[in-house]
Design a protein around this nucleic acid. Structure first.
Length: 524
RNA sequence: GCCCUCGUAGUUUAAUGGAUAAAACAACUCCCUUCUAAGGAGUGGCUGCAGGUUCGAUUCCUGCCGAGGGCACCA
């Protein structure tokens, strides 16, 4: 909010293509906000950046936004915001009762696809990581004014489902086991419970696999909804929505119309090398079967036709090699803004040694086991607090130990303390107040509170969701400092104003925790 | 062999090309007549290696080393 105002002021005096930043410096000595604009454009002006910064300072000084501007270091402009502006900004902020609303999205449709795990068994930790990320990105995007569709794409046909069917047959002893089959307790369990089905569908492994997949999907849905609290709006069945509704043919026809298809060795290929892919990809095999890739192309096409010109697809680390070809089809089918986020590996460690996880071999820790072990709040914080390109090594023993020390409790504690203060106070008296000047410690806390707008805006723009947890922690810290330095209850004429600040902060912190899917306790 | 990621305090992680690289945990020293000590104040310690671009590099480029993933007419 305030940052936006500063940017506006700078744009008035800087060249219009200048790529400058306005950020919150870490040291209080550098002001509330800081900009590198003078250093960035110094060359264009043919001036030294300190001199230019002095010029800018002079011009910007006329704005009543600033109480003080410093030129520092190699040419930074450091801004102190005037208390009146902060105070007014806060009163406006408080009216929103939680989080500010913006309209960055302008009601545009955006699809966020995440998890999309094959229904061949329980969810892995990597699935969960992407799930949490997709969940809160969707929430943030919705908050800033996009129309978001949260999508789970179900690969419920094709070879892996046939393999699943065969795995069941092998488990029942009807065919010999093979290395590529799915193993693990969940396969045996299903086979044991569904002997009749296996017998009946023994000659049709695809059908059998689909029956099993139906049950696995049910339990995936349960894990996501009830255990992990990850929401979805649409469960897109590859079989029903893409194959049976002819999206494969439609995509293929589009490629042909655009002249991007050729035949080689009896197969049909798409020229993805025209789009930074390192080789062309097969659409139809020489046996006449559409590939998984073609189905995905159909899926992207379907989304575009349903009005989604913007899509974020969150994939697991085994899909690095897949990004280039997906981006190629996204462009061809008319997806104007296609973002693919590949999350890094989650490795499981046991006593300092890597424990190889494999879904096929059945040696892995399921997502719900982790949640069961450390709790949903700690699990969400653990995953959401890290950038998606960080390798995560997780030792279950360590995680259990860490969960007791998880920073999430610090944040929740801050919320509980705010609640405690409000519980004890005569809150109803707050409304009728005239708000005079805020005192120094109050302003400090308020400034931190107002930063939430900047953070949400940043996350909505670059999808770096871990900034949200970082900010929430900072907010809790700022509250702790406020709590230490300022007495709220029984502080005479200051009390109502301070209660109002606490009430507003509690609304915001509570809303942020809700956004993150973390509980906000009233007491601890 | 080729391609894609990643490499930061003892550990887990931050840092839109910016200032003295930041926090949590662990270690050590303190603080409970205080709206909840699940808290607070303080101390020590870090950018894998070598070049390059830049006024300025943890960030961008090249090479090397290390870790992970991918290189099917599989999904």
């Amino acid at each position: 909010m305030i940052r936006g105002g500063i940017i506006k002021e700078i744009k008035k005096i800087a060249p219009k293509d200048a790529k400058f930043s306005v950020s919150r410096p870490e040291r209080p000595a550098f002001g509330d906000y800081s900009s590198n604009v003078a250093m960035v454009v110094a060359k264009k002006f043919g001036k030294n950046s300190r001199e230019l910064a002095e010029d800018f300072k002079e011009k910007l000084g006329k704005s009543k936004l600033f109480e003080r501007i410093d030129v520092a270091g190699p040419g930074f402009l450091n801004f102190w915001i005037s208390p009146e502006v902060v105070g007014e900004g806060f009163l406006e902020f408080a009216r929103a009762k939680g989080l500010p609303k913006f309209n960055i999205g302008k009601n545009k449709k955006i699809q966020v696809e995440y998890v999309s795990a094959n229904p061949t068994g329980p969810l892995t930790l990597a699935n969960g990581r992407g799930g949490f990320l997709g969940d809160i990105l969707s929430s943030v995007l919705a908050l800033v004014g996009f129309k978001v569709e949260r999508e789970y794409y179900i690969n419920d046909t094709g070879k892996q489902i046939i393999t699943l069917g065969k795995s069941m047959l092998a488990s029942a002893g009807l065919i010999p086991d093979e290395e590529t089959f799915y193993k693990g307790g969940y396969i045996k369990d299903w086979a044991k419970k569904n002997k009749a089905k296996i017998k009946k569908l023994g000659k049709d492994p695809l059908k059998l696999g689909q029956e099993a997949a139906k049950d696995f999907l049910k339990s995936i849905k349960n894990t996501l909804k009830s255990i992990a609290k990850i929401k979805f709006d649409r469960w897109t069945s590859e079989d029903k929505y893409i194959h049976k509704k002819n999206w494969i043919k439609k995509a293929q026809a589009l490629f042909e119309k655009k002249n991007m298809v050729y035949e080689k060795d009896g197969a049909t290929w798409l020229k993805t090398t025209d789009f930074a892919d390192d080789k062309d990809r097969v659409l139809i095999t020489s046996d006449g079967y559409p590939t998984y890739f073609l189905a995905d192309a159909g899926h992207y096409f379907e989304s575009v036709v349903r009005g989604f010109k913007k899509k974020i697809n969150i994939l697991g680390p085994d899909h690095y090699g897949y990004v280039a070809r997906i981006q190629a089809v996204a462009e061809i089918v008319g997806m104007e803004d296609s973002e693919i986020i590949v999350t890094q590996t989650v490795r499981l460690m046991k006593g300092g040694e890597e424990f190889k996880m494999s879904k096929r071999k059945g040696t892995f820790v399921a997502f719900e086991e982790l949640i069961d072990e450390i709790g949903l709040d700690a699990a969400r914080w653990f995953f959401l607090g890290r950038s998606s390109d960080t390798h995560i090594d997780i030792d279950l023993e360590f995680a259990k130990k860490q969960s007791a020390e998880n920073p999430v409790y610090y944040v929740q504690y801050a919320h509980a303390r705010m609640s405690g203060i409000l519980r004890k106070a005569q809150v109803h008296s707050v409304k009728r107040l005239a708000f005079g000047g805020f005192k120094k410690d109050e302003l400090k806390f308020i400034k931190k509170l107002l930063e939430v707008s900047d953070v949400l805006e940043d996350v909505a723009r670059d999808y770096q969701a871990h900034r949200l947890t970082a900010y929430v922690y900072e907010l809790a810290q700022a509250f702790s400092a406020f709590y230490r330095d300022v007495k709220v209850l029984d502080s005479g004429s200051d009390e109502p104003r301070r209660l109002f600040i606490i009430k507003s902060a509690k609304n915001t912190l509570g809303s942020l925790l809700k956004l993150l899917g973390i509980s906000a306790p009233e007491r601890m």
